[in-house]
Amino acid sequence: MNKRLPIGLAFVLLVLPCSLLVAFTHYPALRALANSFWNNGSSRRPSKFVGWDNYRAMMEDDRLAQVLANSAIYALGTVPLAIGLAIGMALLVNSKLPATGLMRLSFFMPTMLPMVAVANIWLFFYAPGIGLASQILSVFGLPPINFLGSTDTSLASMMVVAVWKEAGLFMIFYLAALQAVPANLKDAARLEGAGHVRVFFDVVLPLLRPTTIFVAVNALINAFRLVDHIIVMTRGGPNNSSALLLYYIYEVTFAHRDFAYGATLTVLMVVILGAMAAVQFWILDRKAHYQ
């Protein structure tokens, strides 16, 4: 059995992680909460306590409504797509096909690139008329699509970039999980007459569930956390069609210098992420089968 730590040592060991947590998570969160009740001061306009004004402004903010809708579409679109693609790629590189090493490398490559580099590659890809996408379309006699310049396609274009970037990383987790699936379970299923598809859905997929939950949690966090490509490629435009919540917070806080409203939006983001985390942990507790 484990030896119990003396209480003093436990305290000492906890001080460092706790102080980091307080300094970089709890204090800023509480500070944001406090700031959200003040308005934004400057040399020409002193800051004053405004109570719920910022929250009232938030309720009436049309732009925020669009940003939240965009974020929801973005998360709901990128998470399942990235997971589906990751499982597909993992199955492919786990198969007995030739050149799986090369496949692993090329699938994993986008993950290794910094998001800003990825965004610049895709910027070139999407450029209407001159980019690769337009050239591929023109081979088939199709007109170029103004991917980033149209409100219909800009958000979807951002989602494709995110999926392309993320799926490779998730593939690695699935690959590890696939290799841990016991062969005898699959053999047993085959003996019972199950085909490939049946084996996958009834044996392999349930065993991948802990991985799927882990990946889904990460993908969802990334959907809110990663906005570098938005900054590089569209700056939320055109007409806010590709603006996500974190990008909006960045713009309001650092470009518009409206720290009070930025703090209010941050509180909203913390509440949303907290609620999602609670739901996810609830599912995690009920559904995950760890061995």
């Binding site: 450029a127 008329g129 001159i130 103004n146 980033l148 149209s150 800009s154």
Partner: peptide, 19 residues
């Protein structure tokens, strides 16, 4: 002119490429 949004950054390139 192309319909929709037109970016600043690609503009010189579009000119040089004859687009």
């Amino acid at each position: 002119m192309a319909p929709g949004g037109i970016s600043w950054g690609d503009t010189p390139k579009a000119f040089l490429e004859g687009q």
